[in-house]
Design a protein around this nucleic acid. Sequence first.
DNA 1: AAGTGGTCTAGACCACCAG
DNA 2: TGGTGGTCTAGACCACTTA
Lengths: 248, 248
Amino acid sequence: MSIDKRKNIKSKQDNIAQDIALKIQHELYQPGNFLPSEYQLCDLYGSSRETVRKALKQLTELGLIQKIRGKGSLVLDIQRFSFPISGITSFQELNKTLNMNATTDVLRKKRDVIPSDLAKGHVDSDRTALHIERLRKIENLPVVLDEDYLLDPPIAEVPDEAAAGSLYAYFENDLGLKISYATKEITVEPVSKRIASLLALGDSNLAVVVRSMTYLADTMPFQLTASYHRPDRFKFVDFARRRKISFK
Amino acid sequence: MSIDKRKNIKSKQDNIAQDIALKIQHELYQPGNFLPSEYQLCDLYGSSRETVRKALKQLTELGLIQKIRGKGSLVLDIQRFSFPISGITSFQELNKTLNMNATTDVLRKKRDVIPSDLAKGHVDSDRTALHIERLRKIENLPVVLDEDYLLDPPIAEVPDEAAAGSLYAYFENDLGLKISYATKEITVEPVSKRIASLLALGDSNLAVVVRSMTYLADTMPFQLTASYHRPDRFKFVDFARRRKISFK
DNA sequence: AAGTGGTCTAGACCACCAG
DNA sequence: TGGTGGTCTAGACCACTTA
């Protein structure tokens, strides 16, 4: 009996959220206007109000709408600026959404020891992992160097096409992994001569380093990444909401 | 009749979320262990299951817990690393939570024209605003230069104590403003001689620039900020969840 | 089989905004 | 006053884990 990969059955609230998001993206609902009221959306999608509200909550978190009591759900005007980049999004996904016309050179795909600066505090540091090194170029100029370390359970091997294309698509669609959350840390650091030359940094040796650890839904870590960005091409865009929880 | 400032009546779900968050912070619930089941939490807080679930949703978004179907809500172990910094958090709030022992010099507090790089696309660029310039130091070394521009409706004036302390506490507690969301953009750029010398950058002139626009719950923008960080002291920590909504 | 979380429902009551 | 969103409830059924 083979492994069940049907999985991606979306819930009603997810479908509603997706549908409204697309309508916003294609400007069927326009910034500055209100969405249909929650009760109207109930009729439209044949669902209860709580379900509609859970869908709207997703759009609120994404920054697509702002709910205003007594008035309605206002479509916001934020996604113009290079779209929601926070969250967990792979380079290839960005490439598609933003039409960046980027290319990827796979420089390495071998088992290696995980560097201590990445393993630190997350994973046994003498553990080996599948190391994939990829140089991303836009208009043929180097922009990002990605160093990925994929942990063996759950990832034993990666086909060349996946390395050159989208790792995430391979993990989610082919392996059936459920990518759930990540921690991310952005710093600016001097880098090795090798990295500096790959990124064509010139006399400077400063790069923006994004280190991240990505986890599956069962909390198993599966990917450690260090991305080295040319400072002059780096841009991190974020949408954030004020939290209600405080720590004292 | 004076303006009503009672407002901050927290909902039941917020109180439950806050209570559990504190218990996690103080290790009454420990990383690697499960929270009481949702039904037990219903009993504990005398509420319905959906309400408990909305509280747990908040903790999930914050990265404090991970829910695992059939098993329970697992307490995560992430907040060790300098705590959730994404979201909208003021420097003073961070200072308190992290015990950074930081000081603030208020260098300027006057009405000024909003610089075009900040106003760009968000606000009429010839509009004036209350400009507050503050240099943040840790261990008496300059770390961040904050340039805040506060829009007049809704902010007419700011007392000196608020500028030296927490603007957000003043806005929320004294003015009763509801701070809701923000867009944020992180880049690395060469900066003016003046800023370079204030941050004691030495021969380099590169700083990490965080530009943000903050909005109230009614979508009125009220704060434009450019923060200039010493690259060697800059660190942005983020927790992110994979989004279910995709854009095609 | 019993216990867990995931989803959806129909209804209720409240707070805010508009005319 | 009627329409909007904000919150809470009690119950139902499903999917998954563990024993």
